[in-house]
Design a protein around this nucleic acid. Structure first.
Length: 212
DNA sequence: TATCCGATCACCT
DNA sequence: GGTGATCGGATAT
């Protein structure tokens, strides 16, 4: 399946892109560690006139990647611990993006498990004895079924990948690889502002989404 | 420079 | 369904 071209990101508005990205495959080809990938099964859109959007007020050093061209990555740190990954959308100079919330793992599951387990060891002290076994159904389901987990599983970090281009960098999107699925639209997860907006989309019946 | 608070995760009840 | 871990970045003073 070919890498999505630049005009795929440029030619659709942010809400449409959030829906079109469902069923596409997010891929990290790491020269050092190997390739990991998963099908995007859950997204959220963040628009410029939306109080939940990081760019709602104005451009700042933290959110400046959101104002770049469509097809750029915006990686930010949440609760000063986890990274979350966004696909920048909309015209250059307009801070809009699509948050990737969950992946169905397709490639490099063993490496994903190694990264998750390494993160447990170096993360919160209370979770240091946790382990995840990607060869079990439950372990596989838990590899990347949340925005903080999927960046660990794919080895995505703010320092390395914020501002990265999806068309020329190590991280790209292929697709779509999933066809003929039903989509569900709901409100977004974990927000205090803009909580009523129906900007969350997921693949109906998929067991890898972050919440029911 | 001081205060406020979060686009999460995993454990607990 | 509730909650702690844990601190950088945005905003106010």
């Amino acid at each position: 399946m070919p890498k999505l071209p630049l005009d795929f990101y440029q030619n659709h508005d942010t809400l449409t892109l959030a829906q079109l990205l469902l069923g596409c495959e997010l891929v990290h080809e790491s020269a050092d560690e190997g390739t990991t990938a998963g099908i995007i099964v859950e997204t959220e859109a963040y628009l410029i006139d939306d109080p939940a959007c990081h760019a709602y007020r104005r451009q700042t050093p933290r959110n400046s990647a959101m104002f770049g061209p469509a097809g750029t990555l915006y990686v930010y740190q949440i609760y000063n611990h986890y990274n979350c990954i966004n696909i920048v959308a909309g015209p250059e100079g307009v801070g809009e993006a699509v948050l990737i919330r969950a992946l169905e793992p397709t490639e490099g599951l063993e490496l994903m498990g190694i990264r998750r387990n390494e993160a447990f060891k170096t993360g919160f002290a209370r979770y240091r004895n946790n382990t995840i076994d990607p060869t079990t159904a439950d372990g596989e389901r838990n590899l990347a079924n949340g925005p903080g987990k999927l960046t660990i599983a794919l080895g995505i970090s703010r320092s390395e990948h914020n501002f990265s281009s999806l068309t020329t960098g190590a991280i790209s999107i292929r697709g779509p690889v999933l066809h003929d699925f039903d989509m569900v639209t709901t409100t977004r997860i974990g927000l205090t502002h803009g909580a009523d907006l129906p900007y969350r989309f997921y693949v109906k019946g998929n067991s890898y989404i972050s919440k029911k």
